[in-house]
């Protein structure tokens, strides 16, 4: 099965600055792929190249099996996209903006245009404000209209660049629901975000960008399993507890004033606790710390999650 998006050694240079540095994206069909990275790490530039808006300096892009940008006219009608925020004509209504975009698509059928536009507006909760001028829209409504534009036709791939930008918590939840709905219908979703929690909640796969390079890529469960689960015991007898943990083969055991932690490895937590109690270690609390994306990110980059240069 071909990948929905596949790039090979994709590179983009602006003068001396390398914005995208030899990345090999592989987005499996049917996945919800989170393209994660701090602001300025090259996500939007990559998306622009994927969609044929910008030319790659080196490397190749295949979208739904078609070589880009040569196959743009054949493949882009099957792709919906939201890139770098919504953009519409301010003096046209939301609906007229969608009519205009649909009229630009020579492969769209005008006969059911109204129905498709109404359905898209309904889907993003914008039906009531469809007749208002775009300039009167709030940031959240603009974002919704951008999503509606990407859903004007059934798509095989949705590319959503920061889809929850500017949305309130309710809107964010609705987008999450929308993404899962679209994904359930079989559409591959490629969504970029700088919000770890967002990707954690929505995605099956993740690619992590850092300063233009793709530092990690794979299914979330695979990436997570590469990280060690840690066992934390809160106790005032830290040294005794550490002794027990070492006996069970836990690695990197470290004691501090409130307790002790160690990498669980193959040990069974229940057995460890039983042994602790038998050894007379007073256990106040036992926590199994499964690494989240945040820990994953830090472990991969050795850095925090700030704006890239």
């Amino acid at each position: 099965m071909t990948s929905a998006i596949a790039t090979s050694a994709l590179t983009k240079r602006f003068g001396k600055r390398t914005a995208v540095d030899v990345i090999d994206l592989d987005v499996p069909q049917g996945s919800v792929y989170g393209f994660l990275g701090p602001n300025g790490s090259g996500k939007t530039t990559t998306i622009r190249i994927l969609l044929g808006l910008a030319a790659a300096s080196e490397g190749t892009v295949h979208l739904l099996g078609e070589r880009m940008p040569d196959g743009a006219s054949a493949v882009l009608p099957r792709v919906g996209a939201l890139v770098d925020g919504p953009a519409f004509h301010p003096y046209l209504s939301g609906r007229d903006n969608l009519v205009r975009l649909d009229a630009a698509d020579r492969t769209a059928t005008p006969a059911d245009r109204r129905r498709r536009i109404d359905a898209a507006l309904e889907r993003v909760g914008l039906a009531a404000a469809a007749g208002k001028n775009y300039r009167a829209y709030s940031q959240g409504m603009r974002q919704r209209l951008g999503l509606a534009a990407s859903l004007l036709r059934p798509r095989e791939l949705l590319v959503l660049d920061e889809p929850t930008n500017g949305l309130d918590p309710q809107g964010t939840r609705e987008v999450r629901h929308l993404v899962s709905e679209v994904a359930a219908a079989g559409t591959t979703v490629f969504l970029s975000s700088h919000l770890l929690s967002e990707v954690d909640q929505m995605c099956t796969h993740v690619g992590i960008m850092r300063s233009g390079a793709l530092v990690a890529q794979g299914s979330i469960s695979t990436l997570r399993s590469a990280l060690a689960t840690r066992l934390r015991i809160d106790t005032r007898a830290g040294d005794d507890a550490a002794e027990v943990l070492r006996r069970f083969g836990l690695r990197n055991v470290a004691a501090d004033s409130t307790g002790v932690t160690g990498e669980l490895g193959g040990a069974v937590p229940e057995d460890v606790v039983e042994e602790l109690v038998k050894s007379g270690v007073p256990v106040r609390q036992v926590i199994i710390e499964r690494p989240g994306l945040e820990e994953l990110f830090v472990s991969l980059t050795g850095e925090g999650f700030d704006v890239d240069e």
Binding site: M1, T2, Q29, G30, L64, G65, S73, A74, P77, R78, A103, D105, R106, T107, A108, T109, P110, R153, P154, R155, E156, A185, G186, T187, T188
Partner: peptide, 19 residues
Amino acid sequence: STSELIGAPAPAPTRTALP
């Protein structure tokens, strides 16, 4: 076809709109 494989009924692009 690809679209059957992934279950999303996206029709193959054809020239349907008037020029």
